[in-house]
Amino acid sequence: MALSTNNVLLASNISVQFGGLLAVNDVTFGIPEKSVVSLIGPNGAGKTTFFNVITGLYKPSSGTVNYDGTDTTDLPPHKIAALGMARTFQNIRLFGLMTAEENLLVAMHSHLKSGILATIMGTPSQRKEEKEALDRAREILDFVGIGKWAGEYARNLSYGDQRRLEVARALALNPKVLLLDEPTAGMNPQESQVFIDFVYKVRAERDVAILLIEHDMKVVMSVSERVTVLDQGEKIAEGTPDEIRSNQRVIEAYLGKAKGGK
C-alpha cells in the first residue's frame, strides 16, 4: 500500500539543544495519514526527545511542528492532546488508582463541555454527556479487548492489559495520530506478535496514523510502512523496512564501523 502524501503531522527542521548538547539536529519528519511509521535508533539517538517535542513537552530550539493544519509548536501539551494527538508511555503511566473506565474518561476531559455548576446541579445535558462518554469508554475498552475490566483499578490489571489500557486511553482522545513509545518493552515474542496484530486492528478500524518508537526490530520491520533512523540527533536514513535493512549507515550506527575498513 502506497503511503498517503498528506502528512497529518509534519515536524520541520526540528533542533533541540540542552546546554551544549544538541539532542536533535535539524530533523524533518512527517507522518502520512493512516500510516504506520517507525522511529528507531540506538540509545541516546534523540528519539524520545523528538517525541517530547511533538507532544509539546519540550519546545524546540528551532523548527516548527504542524499538526493537521495547526501550528502546535508553542501550544502546551494538553491543548495538543485535545486536538487529537495521543500517546502512550514507555514505562506505563496509567492513573493506577482509578478504574479502567475512569482512565478513559479522563482522556475525554477536553471533549466534555459541562462546567462546574452544571456538574454540581447535574443538569440533564451534563448527565447525557456523562452517559455518552461512559458508553464510548466501554466501547473502546471492548475494542481493545479488556471490556470485562472496566470497573477494575488500572493498577490491578496484568502487564499486557495495562499496555492495552494505555492504548485505549489514548484512543479515547479521538486521535488522528497515535504515538506509541516502546509499546512492546517487556513483552516476550508471542506477546509482541499479539501486539503487532493489535496495532493493525487499531489502524484499520480507528482511522488513525501510528508512530512507533521501538527497539524490537522484528516488530518494527513487520508493522512499519516506513522506518526513520536517528543517530546522535540526526536523521541518517528513511525508507521501507527493506531499504533500511540494507542501509550501510544504519548498520554502522547499530553495530559500529568495521575497523581498518576501506
Binding site: T55, L57, P76, P77, H78, K79, A81, A82, A86, R87, F89, R93, L94, F95, V106, A107, H109, S110, R169, A172, L173
Partner: peptide, 8 residues
C-alpha cells in the same frame, strides 16, 4: 500523564 491526556 494527565496533561498528556488533555487535562489543563
Amino acid at each position: 500523564a494527565a496533561s498528556m491526556m488533555g487535562v489543563p
